[in-house]
Design a protein around this nucleic acid. Structure first.
Lengths: 195, 195
DNA sequence: ACCATAACACTAACCGTTAGTTTTAAAAAA
DNA sequence: TTTTTTAAAACTAACGGTTAGTGTTATGGT
């Protein structure tokens, strides 16, 4: 299935990457709002319609690999060791993601995102989508007999932790602090059984 | 200050209301996406630029009185009885807001919002703005010696409760369930003092 | 009566996005 | 190979939200 990708798919992937790379370079160079889609298309030597056949919107050019993010969140839940409690596993993953954004070589990108309202809005609804996937993953865990509402709530709280921590002075400490609260919320959601 | 508003301000308010009313009527009649700003302007008998001098965007026409929402959240914190605990007061207000959306005569509006992606996105970032105001109000309460991070977290959780409850089968029960979790989170955020 | 200004109108455009159509090139069938 | 099919990408043109620039009118203060 992943053996010989075929020339067509290779060219398509190359076009996609060329567009994304060109766009990011121009955005960082001249500022997101100062660069139009037509500029990106011209610089990447493709048609405007080609840009939109690879990316759903201008903002999507910046968040090229957002599916990674979602995957990692879900995997932190579904792929954790047996009997490992949910919340610490989630906390570790959020910590890793926050570090990834704060310290990465991609720091200028995140500064641009923070400074551009359109990008902030886009990221917000992206995170809500991710929260939905995370909620489903939590709800599907057979070892967690919680309400759907409780699962969706915890998922929201987790992505809240991410975005709040990114704005905090000490992001990693903020994640810890918020997750102490999430842990308590998760306990309180238990169907009033043990301890 | 509110005595004789003057003819000018009255006319301005009238124009604003006429635009908003016309827009909402057209939206509910023909569907949000099927009505253009130029349609609204023509039907309200104003220029397109006048619409945008009263409302920042097409979506803002639908959420005309969103400042009410923010005010009520903040007031639930700042205007509560002395020594009344924070969380129950917040819970009551969120309950009221959820009821207001679910049972109000404005139910068709909320159905339209739920069905229109652009409006949902707009509401999302609106709620985040409200969460910021709420966080400030909580942080400014002298009786609550919590971290800024904890205050912002609780504010987020509260608006999460609102949007999650609105999507739940039994909204009022959902608010109660989520606020049990929020209460626990708030307790856990205490600087490790009493009890 | 006069002037400053706020509200609004009008034109024209910018920019993200999409539809419709056509060319090009890769994959599959003959 | 040759032919046929299919998918990528080009091109043209437009739509719809939004804004800039420029007047025009009516209101409020002097």
């Amino acid at each position: 299935m992943t053996a010989p990708p075929g020339r067509r798919e290779r060219k398509k992937a190359a076009t996609r990457r060329k567009i994304a790379d060109t766009a990011l370079r121009l955005f960082l160079d001249r500022g997101y709002d100062a660069v139009g889609i037509r500029d990106v298309a011209a610089e990447a030597d493709v048609a405007v319609t080609t840009v939109f056949s690879h990316f759903a919107s201008k903002e999507a050019l910046v968040f090229e690999q957002d599916e990674d993010f979602e995957q990692r969140l879900v995997q932190a839940v579904t792929g954790r060791a047996p009997h490992e409690p949910l919340i610490p596993a989630l906390c570790r993953e959020i910590q890793a993601l926050v570090r990834h954004c704060a310290a990465d070589s991609a720091a200028p990108v995140w500064r641009m995102v923070d400074e551009t309202p359109a990008l902030r809005k886009y990221e917000e609804s992206m995170m809500l989508r991710h929260a939905e996937s995370l909620a489903t993953a939590i709800a599907d865990d057979p070892g967690l007999p919680q309400t759907t509402t409780a699962c969706r709530t915890i998922a929201r709280f987790a992505v809240d932790a991410y975005s709040l921590a990114r704005e905090a002075a000490d992001p990693e400490a903020a994640v810890d602090e918020i997750f102490r609260m999430i842990e308590a919320a998760w306990e309180a959601a238990r169907p009033a059984r043990d301890t």
